[in-house]
Design a protein around this nucleic acid. Structure first.
Lengths: 132, 132
DNA sequence: AGTGGTATTGACGCAAACGTAAAGGAACGT
DNA sequence: ACGTTCCTTTACGTTTGCGTCAATACCACT
């Protein structure tokens, strides 16, 4: 299985984060590894959550916002009582993400235009250099 | 024209930021409004830059990174000596942005799956309620 | 018993990105 | 002249997200 337990060091190497970071996330209740005596052991679930945390950070979410998002993925076991609310929140998040993607596409288009404009200027300069 | 000059308050209202934020960005040389006596007056150019700043923040860029991106858009006047370096930086940013968009699309797909899964659970519950 | 490697819990430090007074100038109406 | 409103600079405070010791503990060798 992929249910391999990993030490903190293995996690650091695998995800390119420091041990301090992992303990910090744990303190903020973003992940909750098993304790074998003193040592922490990270499960597949922890790895999944960490992956989402790092993703969230890349998109400018605060750790607190990420914690809320993580809760979305951690149901399937608990009662469905609160699920309707969660569902609505998730819908909003989805809309937000899609808006972000659209905006990101716009930014990419703009940047590409700028670069093409720059390329033309560069080629003009090169022509000058050659003809001089 | 849209070359209307705006006061700091008008900017705050238009972009939903505080005056402190605008002054802070100015101190960091992200924007550079005109000075009429004591007061700041923001041009169309300033508004364009602010828009990009806020966009950048939404995607998790630091202000320092945003400053570099802004420099891309503000050439066309200065020397092209440094442009090659800037061009390379821009290429990297572009690749980064496209990777982000792809990742964002993955996240959106995942979330949609989760939601559909949730919808099925909800409809099952509703059936129970009806048959009870 | 000593040495080395890895983990753990504090605790303090720090940069980024502003918030929040404090104190004062400039323009305006009355 | 006075109060009000809007802006200014200066400067200290705060939160987030970790970095960086310091002291301690566990385990494996030798």
């Amino acid at each position: 299985m992929t249910d391999q337990l990993m030490t903190i060091r293995e996690m650091c190497d695998a995800f390119d984060v420091t041990a301090r970071t992992l303990r910090f996330y744990e303190q903020k209740e973003l992940i909750s590894p098993i304790r074998e005596g003193q040592k922490r052991l990270y499960t597949r679930k922890d790895r999944g959550r960490l992956k989402l945390i790092l993703r969230g950070k890349r998109f400018g979410f605060s750790l607190e916002e990420i914690r809320q998002l993580l809760d979305l993925y951690s149901l399937g076991d608990g009662q469905t009582t609160q699920y309707l609310r969660t569902y609505e929140i998730a819908q909003k998040h989805l809309a937000d993400l899609e808006a972000r993607r659209d905006e990101l596409n716009d930014v990419i288009s703009d940047l590409k235009e700028q670069l093409q404009w720059g390329e033309q200027r560069l080629s003009q300069i090169n022509e000058k250099d050659v003809s001089a």
